[in-house]
Design a protein around this nucleic acid. Structure first.
Lengths: 224, 224
DNA sequence: CGTCAGCAACTTGTATACAACCAGCGTACG
DNA sequence: CGTACGCTGGTTGTATACAAGTTGCTGACG
């Protein structure tokens, strides 16, 4: 493939592949393979991988390769704790104005998710999850906080998709659709504290469900 | 100079030069000059500069050079707001155990600062400021929060040193020494909420003093 | 005198050759 | 048979040549 895309495109592409588990935790990426895939040399690819390493999504190891970060629950527990706190902070601070167009797209996303109840495509649901995060992140007015929230989200973005096969599919779809709908309404009314409360509740419940089914938050590390 | 130091050393060196105003806001860095100074090629230098760009401390512009970020008060106001919120979050979350040795060094730093009252070396005071931040940051138990706090600190680290010449030197030294002492005591007693309250109060007061003397938080941007 | 084209001397971005390094396998030897 | 050594094919790290871009000066021309 000769794409010749810029840094931002490649960065977001690889980040999405990691979040969607296209690159499973622990898998090995090669700078050469990525370079030929994107039709460029190793140099700009290395820039992207170094950025992903800063983000904590991969670890570049000399002589070995670039390893997609394992899902380390001992560490991600800290990230979840922090995200919970930050959700409240977001609720207390200035908000960005969210256009009616954005809200419309969010409601459309809700309908798409509802329609997934019968199909059972985990990857599509994970994609919807990413788009949902994109939408609610856009409402954060404080720029550095927005950047931080985005980075922290991608650190934990793989946990739910990874756990999905072990959960009750229809139930997860229903609950997620409810969250989207509630957040869309909160955004519509400019009710930031309400948005925060909704997201906080759903995040806690989600962690509980995963924990009940898997005990994931007791164990550490995940094999490939 | 043929130093041959690793990424972390060069990164911290450049970050400190920016924080201490050795590289004034808006000044131009050249990859070639830095490469020859550190006795290496452009490649590892570029890695450092890209990281600093990600941190928001420089902006790399093709055909021009690498520009040390100007002190943009419109943006830094947002960073200060966020840091104030995060200070409270830090106070509510788990703490790292701070060794007696660390506390001793902090009290020694206090004495060094007190001794600066008569000398008037702004750069030395700024260095003490960095070391103080290092010490209190070390008490943050939540790893991602620690990283975030450190990055946000360096975004605003230049504001006080930059304003120092326009402030009352002896007063600033005295207040800063008090802050160090109060924080050392709070750390000693493991009183994280107390530490947060102290830092919050001093941060707000410091902003007020700078604002009173300069009106800095009303204007945006700073020339070279 | 003013203006504008073009050159010159920088800058960063990219491609590439090579150095350093790691893991696994095969083989020779104890 | 077991162990240890070294080779081999891969990886990332570094240096470097070149491409592409910006800025400012310089000089010719209106």
């Amino acid at each position: 493939m000769t794409d010749n895309r810029s840094f931002k495109d490649i960065y977001e592409a690889l980040r999405e592949r990691i979040a969607l588990l296209d690159y499973p935790p622990g898998s090995l990426l090669s700078e050469n393979r990525l370079a030929t895939e994107f039709g460029i040399s190793r140099t700009p690819i290395r820039k992207v991988l170094q950025r992903l390493e800063f983000d904590g999504l991969v670890s570049v190891e000399r002589g070995v390769g670039t390893i997609v970060a394992p899902i380390d629950m001992l560490y991600l527990k800290q990230v979840y704790e922090l995200r919970l706190k930050l959700i409240d902070v977001i609720g207390e601070m200035d908000a960005n104005w969210v256009s009616a167009e954005e809200i419309r797209k969010l409601r459309q996303l809700h309908d798409e998710v509802v329609a997934m109840a019968d199909l059972g495509e985990p990857r599509e649901l994970a994609r919807a999850y990413l788009r949902f995060n994109e939408a609610v992140t856009r409402a954060i007015g404080n720029q550095p906080l927005k950047d931080i929230a985005d980075r922290l989200f991608y650190l934990t973005a793989r946990v739910w998709p990874q756990a999905l096969p072990a959960l009750d599919w229809r139930r997860e779809v229903t609950i997620f659709a409810e969250e989207i709908s509630a957040c869309a309404t909160a955004l519509e009314e400019g009710d930031l504290p309400g948005l925060a409360a909704t997201r906080r509740r759903h995040m806690i419940d989600c962690i509980h469900r995963i924990n009940d089914y898997l005990g994931a938050f007791e164990v550490a590390g995940e094999p490939v």
